[in-house]
Design a protein around this nucleic acid. Structure first.
Lengths: 348, 348
DNA sequence: GAAACTTCGGAAACCGGTTTCCTCACGCTA
DNA sequence: TAGCGTGAGGAAACCGGTTTCCGAAGTTTC
């Protein structure tokens, strides 16, 4: 039924990828010898090695990774599962991880589970069937989640999101630390009457950031001018919340917002109300989302969670685990405060 | 050196993934028989088949895809190369493609070439070495680019970006058609004095959209109130360009912007200048980027390039090509106009 | 001049599956 | 009872590589 395999006659004949036996034939050696020549193993005459290499070059030979995987037991691939839809937060994570893994000669399978546990388990099975060397699990929220599987034969690292099992390896941003930096900065530039506008109260990040904000202020002997204003992660809420603040009799000279979107809405409404930023009110956002932070008037001081670095770190931890040096537990990475005109006018 | 392989003794012993010979041993049959049972081939007693399946179940057996790939010649994987950094435009593309491919039981290798031709060729070699069944090439710009390779042994589909070789398969949005829809809509709601603010003149999308805008207006017997204002893809430019327009004596009752960011800047400046949107000036954006279009005041009418559908289409075309039904040439997908309050007040 | 070492490269096993081919036992018919 | 057809399942080849093992030369050494 199958016609006999024919060897690629001419260089560059790419109808079928060249195999190592094509190379061996062309070089006039056995496949074993060809393999040794290509991998620098065994003891071969210089001349023989050269002949094989030139044959491989001529045929554009690329070893079939599936075959290599079969007898090395390693595929040099990892799976990346985003538990919820790939979005703004996932991208830097993915990019950082992909970059770090690519440097380790690893290829990445992209799996978008779209918030669906069924899809998630389907992807997990697929990845296991493909014998990936490890898995990175990411998500849009930092909240802990149930482990994706137990007793898996390969290492798993959770990035941004964390695993509810403290024995799993997770890498998360230090959101509380980020809030501390924001508060310290505002206090440092002389603000004392600080408000906090943020996302939904039940949202993990909103809760953490708000609590850390109040805690840090308390350490400094200060209070928020009003309880944290919980709402949505939207500009509209930022606008609305500032209206609320303006409507109260409480004076304020700074607003720390739980996201850049909220901060941007706040900035617009403050300006419309004639409050100058930063002169009258200093403004700090969270996420350092360039599109928001830079387009804001004035450009926004913001807390950067360094997601790309976080993705890179997750990848490095995964590589280490694959090489037999697991680092279980939750690893916390510091946030970085990026200072712009909304708190301190930058000299050009 | 290697200890003898030991069979997983207990169900759920996941120290090493179960192989088909583990299954065969447990079921008391040969590996060939096990394979037939698992794939519904050959003629086996019902009892035997059941025994094998239950053994596989018990061991959590997942066939090693590398081994399957080796003798089927198909890996059921595709590579997705983003020529420039993964960004806002790439994501819907990736998601659409990943979704369509996942439905075809294909896994996706993610490759971020970061605008670096060297990285691009490196990824191409890697993918070929992994014997992917096909490749999708995407990019941030719609402009044509040199083919990623010639005489490749596998099909390639270009999505969003297109290949300079017209014989290659490319899927692109109909940007000109999108501009037509925007113009038709503005004219349809009674606007006659239309301005156009867009990105850099040398940018393919800016040029196409501007040309299509002028052409469509000409068909209607109209002209732009001023030559297209080319600048940057930023809110700042949108603000600045509206200042320019306001500074001239030319009256205008509509602005069609080359991007939602520009439109948003335009909206802010119009409002600040006391021009009501849409009453005095109707505003249309491009991209339908929810973050911008919805946060804009008022919410922005915008042209949607339907990138997710585009990614899905690219994946479908790739699957067809893999199955021996290539569809060479450039495929153009229509844009969709999403109407919001910035042109027509929507009844709630 | 024979024994002992090296050097080089081929043969073959192996990774984990799939598929072809073949054998064996059984049941039916003449 | 011999002959034949059929169903069930095992043996082995194969996919494309890597690695171990071994043998055939050539080179020393005494």
């Amino acid at each position: 039924m199958m016609p006999p395999r024919k060897v690629a006659e001419s260089p560059g004949n790419l109808s079928r990828p060249a195999t190592i036996s094509d190379v061996a034939n062309l070089a006039g050696v056995s496949v074993g010898t060809a393999s040794k020549a290509l991998n620098g193993r065994g003891s071969l005459r210089v001349e023989t090695r050269r002949r094989v290499l030139s044959a491989a070059e001529q045929l554009g030979f690329q070893p079939n990774k599936a075959a290599v995987a079969l007898n090395s037991g390693r595929t040099y691939t990892v799976g990346m599962i985003t538990t919820d839809t790939i979005g703004r937060f996932s991208i830097p994570l993915l990019m950082g991880a992909e970059d770090a893994l690519g440097a380790g000669e690893m290829s990445v399978f992209l799996c978008d589970a779209r918030d669906d546990p069924i899809r998630e388990q389907y992807y997990l099975r697929t990845l296991l069937s493909r014998r990936v060397d490890g898995i990175i699990v990411t998500g849009r929220r930092t909240q802990a989640r149930p482990p994706i599987g137990t007793g898996l034969p390969i290492p798993v690292v959770y990035a941004f999101i964390s695993s509810a099992d403290p024995g799993d390896c997770s890498v998360v941003p230090d959101e509380a630390g980020g809030a501390h930096k924001a508060v310290d900065h505002l206090v440092g530039v002389g603000r004392r009457r600080i408000a906090h506008i943020t996302g939904p109260e039940h949202h993990h990040s909103a809760a953490i950031r708000a609590a850390a904000t109040e805690a840090r202020l308390a350490e400094t002997g200060l209070d928020l001018v009003s309880p944290p204003l919980f709402g949505e992660w939207s500009e509209a809420w930022g606008r609305q919340a500032v209206q609320i603040l303006l409507g109260t009799s409480r004076e304020f000279d700074a607003v720390f917002c739980g996201s850049d979107q909220i901060a941007r809405g706040a900035a617009d409404t403050l300006r419309a109300a004639g409050r100058r930023v930063p002169d009258d009110v200093a403004l700090v956002g969270f996420d350092n989302w360039d599109v928001m932070a830079l387009a804001c008037q004035p450009p926004l001081t913001s807390v950067d969670m360094e997601l790309e670095k976080l993705g890179r770190t997750a990848a490095d931890l995964l590589l280490a685990a694959i090489n037999g040096e697991p680092a279980p537990g939750t690893h916390t990475l510091p946030c970085r405060l990026v200072i712009r005109d909304s708190t301190v006018l930058q000299s050009t």
